[in-house]
Simulated assay, not measured.
Amino acid sequence: MSTEEKAGAGHARHRLDDVIHAPVRFSIVATLAGVDEAEFAMVRDEVEVSDSALSKQVSTLEQAGYVRVRKGYIGKRPRTWLSLTAHGRRAFSDHLAALREIAGG
C-alpha cells in the first residue's frame, strides 16, 4: 500500500494534526485563517490568552512551519504580526476536513 493509500485509509482521527489540535493553537490558526495578517494583540484578545501563552503557542506553530512571525514598528512602538503560511493553511484545511468526517458531515 502506498503512503497516499495509507493516508486515505482508516479512521479520520489519524489525519488530525497534533500541532493544530490543541485548543489554543486551533483557535490561533482559525483566527489567522480568516485574514492575511493579524497583529499579535488582536490575536491575543480574540483567543483570550495572555501574551506569554500566545507567544509559546505561536512558537510551536512557527517551528512546525504553520505561522510566520513578522516584527516591525508603528512609529516608535514595536509590533508583531502573525500570518499563516501556505503550509499552515493546507494543514488547517486538512485538519478541518478530518474533523468534519469524524462529525459525519
Results as ranks from 00 to 15, higher is better:
Leu96Asp: 06
Ile74Ser: 10
Ala98Met: 06
Val58Lys: 01
Asp94Gly: 09
Ala97Phe: 07
Val47Leu: 03
Ala12Cys: 09
Glu62Leu: 04
Leu96Cys: 12
Trp81Leu: 10
Ile74Leu: 11
Ser50Gln: 05
Gly65Arg: 03
Lys6Pro: 03
Lys6Met: 12
Ala98Gly: 02
Ser52Thr: 13
Val19Ile: 15
Pro23Ser: 10
Asp36Ser: 12
Ala103Tyr: 05
Ala53Cys: 05
Asp94Arg: 08
Ala22Lys: 09
Gly34Met: 12
His14Glu: 15
Arg79Gly: 03
Gly10Ile: 09
Thr31Trp: 00
His21Cys: 08
Ala41Thr: 13
Val58Asp: 03
Glu101Ala: 11
Gly8His: 08
Thr85Gln: 10
Ala91Cys: 02
Arg89Ile: 09
Arg44Pro: 00
His14Thr: 14
His11Lys: 09
Arg44Gln: 13
Val29Trp: 00
Asp18Ile: 13
Ile102Ser: 04
Gly75Tyr: 06
Ser50Pro: 00
Asp36Trp: 11
Val19Thr: 15
Leu82His: 01
Ala86Gly: 11
Arg79Ala: 09
Ala7Met: 07
Arg90Gln: 09
Ser50Asp: 10
Ile102Phe: 05
Arg68Ile: 10
Tyr66Thr: 03
Thr31Leu: 02
Ser83His: 02
Ser50His: 07
Asp94Trp: 07
Asp45Lys: 14
Ser52Asp: 11
Thr3Gly: 10
Asp94Asn: 11
Ser83Pro: 01
Val35Leu: 12
Ser55Gly: 07
Arg15Asn: 11
Ser52Leu: 10
Glu5Thr: 09
Ser93Phe: 09
His95Leu: 03
Asp36His: 14
Val58His: 03
Leu54Tyr: 00
Leu54Asn: 00
Ala53Tyr: 02
His14Leu: 15
Lys56Gly: 07
Ser27Gly: 15
Ala64Val: 04
Arg15Leu: 07
Gly104Tyr: 05
Gly10Glu: 08
Ala64Thr: 06
Ser27Lys: 15
Gly88Ile: 01
Thr31His: 11
Gly104Asn: 12
Ile74Pro: 00
Val47Tyr: 01
Val35Lys: 13
Ser27Asn: 13
Ala64Cys: 06
Glu37Val: 15
Val47Asn: 04
Asp18His: 08
Arg15Thr: 09
Ala86Asn: 13
Arg77Phe: 05
Arg15Val: 13
Ile20Leu: 13
Gly104Lys: 11
His14Asn: 14
Gly75His: 02
Gly105His: 11
Arg70His: 08
Arg70Pro: 02
Met1Val: 15
Ile28Met: 04
Arg25Asn: 03
Arg25Ser: 03
Ala91Asn: 00
Tyr73Ala: 08
Val58Pro: 01
Thr60Ser: 09
